[in-house]
Nucleic acid binder design. Structure first.
Lengths: 232, 232
DNA sequence: CCAAAAGTGTTCAGCTTACACCCATGA
DNA sequence: TCATGGGTGTAAGCTGAACACTTTTGG
């Protein structure tokens, strides 16, 4: 494509991804050791430079695919970072994205070939540049989303039990919820489908599996519905 | 600054600003007729290219200052747009910002020397590129913000009456609110300071002026408070 | 039969909503 | 004195929050 704006300065543009995962107990993020200078060897978000013929979203998808082999993940743009001195290797505009990886896939990835490592959200090491800021913002965004959208389901396997879902919400918000109120609230939403099968791994009695019914959810959204778990 | 990333592609980066204003009756946005090709003469958001030694925020501030002569405006980053074909003049990554201009200043600007023109939010003309999408997103963001932050005050003069504030909220949300409940809710927040002076312009009885008390507001924020006007 | 997690209902408080009349003033 | 917008209070319904015991089953 010819570019009529050639007299203006050009900039390197990158994407950085905050990858949230859930191992069934704790909320985690996936970090890598940076493989090139500057700051080589330090912990970093997964990132990469934008290429000619790809959109920002494409770039984020590509970067995620290169690291994890996964596509079709939940992917949401977080914020664009553009401070002049934010990257000590040169001027780079970075657009941060966040994504969610569910437990099953998560376990397959526990040791990724690219040196990715999962870190508990409470034990995030010092990160290069402004990546720490990005993580903080991503966590806030995740909490906001989980309040009003069924985003939490992205972090769970297709079939999950109510206690598992409760546990996930407790991990995301780092607090406890009353299980009776939680169950009541989530079930009144009418977006969960109870299966006949039980999970017998976590208790003697067993807990019924549920799955998320996207059709019902979309129906609610169309009718101007707000999905509001929480408060209690 | 030397740049160790030189082997990667560079891109033009721009900022575009959605400028909301309030004339005392309607919610408006400020648009300009584009002064260069392509799409010269069409309605457009105010924008400009990012320069070497400025951050994205700096660029947005500069663009706003160049158009309006104003600085220290409320300014919030909205979203980064990066589709390959979004700009027919060449590949440009655009970071959108939105800002709010209060009535008094607004009136001084009704006819800006740069050909800016205020458009009622209900009568936004076709805009170039993806600017229409940006406006839609900005309006959603404004509505979200106005719910939980005292952002609406940015659109009013320093002294304002409760009926004026009500009117503004009705303009933002494009619906009516019950004036008794609105007054009750806003006053229980304890962030408004009643003045002894009355506005006699809009009624015979006159309406008391209030002003926003930022100290009280900050105090509430620190204590984990959520500013929630609305619902009714 | 016991340990351990799953599952279930009710009550109270506070907030949201709906709603109608009097007040002050300038013309 | 009257027209106009400003200002006020209350009752009903709903939602959120707190809270304790029974059920199931494998070991």
């Amino acid at each position: 494509m010819k570019n009529g704006y050639a007299r203006h300065t050009s900039f390197h543009v990158a994407v950085d991804c905050i990858i949230f995962g859930y191992d069934g107990i704790h909320l985690k993020i996936l970090l890598v050791k940076r493989s090139f200078e500057p700051e080589k060897g330090k912990w970093s978000l997964v990132g990469g430079f934008l290429k000619d013929e790809e959109s920002l979203d494409d770039a984020a998808e590509r970067v995620l695919f290169e690291l994890t082999g996964l596509s079709d993940l939940y992917l949401e743009q977080l914020y664009a970072y553009g401070d002049v001195q934010r990257d000590s290797g040169g001027r780079v505009i970075s657009v941060a994205y966040f994504t969610l990886i569910n437990t099953e896939v998560f376990n397959g990835l526990s040791s990724t070939k690219y040196g990715g490592k999962w870190h508990d959200i409470h034990e995030v090491p010092d990160l290069i540049f402004d990546h720490g800021t990005m993580v903080t913002k991503a966590l806030r965004r995740l909490r906001r989303r989980a309040k009003t959208q069924p985003i939490g389901f992205e972090l769970l396997p297709e079939k999950f039990t109510i206690p598992q879902l409760l546990n996930l919400y407790e991990a995301i918000y780092d607090r406890e919820f009353d299980k009776r109120n939680f169950r009541k609230k989530i079930l009144t939403l009418n977006v969960l489908e109870k299966l006949t099968e039980k999970d017998m791994k976590n208790s003697r009695k067993g807990a019924f599996y549920y799955k998320f019914n996207l059709d019902k959810y979309n129906q609610l959204i169309i009718n101007g519905f707000v999905f509001d778990i929480l408060s209690n």
